[in-house]
């Protein structure tokens, strides 16, 4: 177990060194993060959306800033396994005595650490410049973030599996990304959409993730949104093993067909 954790640390170290070698890119990412937070904050500072106030008991500014901040986790998690499964190095990692789960977690780790920094930047701007008030339930927040990330990694593993077989074009991630933007409860409540359409939201773990995270950040206990929390747990419990199985099956098939290192 300790050895596996140390391997994950090595993945993080590798990714930090690679990432930090593109210095201009880091600067641009930070500037984009700050500008994104400012743009949405100015957009919402004097605006209101009735449904947000009713359903979440918060201002549109809080809704948008939290949505924007935590969408970094979701976007990253939806693509992490695809990036890790690059044919450029997949064989070299798979020939090592490293468990598949360590490989996936290790590949995701640095991205998630960076996302945490981005979340702090978003929330810091909201609190420091726009009077965003939070009453954070730390344990609940960590739990919900872990569930949100895990469910999306489930999608990512399915997408990566498909990508290993088809080599280019990942319809799963493409579809989930589009659905997240439209029905994911990221920047607007899906309930503003016409009735039958917004029902799609209820099938997505992202919807429950954003609902739960918003409520827990303004001081609600998990017990007060237990139903949404349980659905998030269930969807994660379904997606994660299914994703893992599909990914492992696709790797097996690529090994059978001899196309593991194909582009």
């Amino acid at each position: 177990m300790f050895e596996e954790l140390h391997k994950i640390y090595s993945f993080i170290k590798r990714d930090i060194f690679s990432w930090s070698s593109y210095k201009l890119n880091i600067l641009l990412i930070i500037i984009s993060t700050v500008f994104g937070a400012l743009a949405y904050a100015f957009l919402s500072v004097n605006a209101q959306m009735q449904i947000v106030t009713q359903k979440y008991n918060m201002s549109l500014l809080s809704y948008l800033i939290i949505g924007l901040a935590f969408s970094t986790y979701i976007n990253q998690s939806l693509n992490v396994v695809q990036k890790a499964s690059s044919p450029w190095w997949l064989e070299e990692v798979l020939v090592s005595p490293t468990r598949l789960i360590t490989f996936i977690v290790g590949s995701a780790a640095w991205g998630l650490i960076w996302n945490t920094i981005a979340v702090l930047i978003y929330l810091g701007i909201g609190i420091g410049f726009f009077g965003l008030t939070l009453n954070i339930n730390i344990l609940g927040t960590l739990l919900i973030v872990a569930l949100g990330i895990s469910s999306c990694i489930g999608f990512s593993m399915i997408g990566a599996g498909v990508l290993i077989i088809v080599k280019q074009g990942d319809p799963i991630s493409w579809l989930v990304q589009i659905f997240t933007e439209l029905f994911g409860n990221v920047l607007f409540p899906p309930e503003v959409m016409p009735y039958p359409l917004h029902l799609i939201s209820y099938l997505l773990p992202q919807y429950y993730f954003f609902k739960c995270i918003r409520l827990t950040l303004i001081g609600y206990s998990i017990a007060s949104f237990l139903q949404d929390f349980i659905i998030l747990v269930l969807l994660t419990a379904i997606l994660l093993p299914i994703g893992y199985k599909i990914y492992a099956w696709c790797l097996h098939r690529a090994k059978k067909e001899g196309t593991l290192s194909w582009f």
Binding site: R14, W89, E92
Partner: peptide
């Protein structure tokens, strides 16, 4: 020359 990390 695959399998290595080019920026390391």
């Amino acid at each position: 020359d695959r399998g290595f990390f080019w920026r390391l």
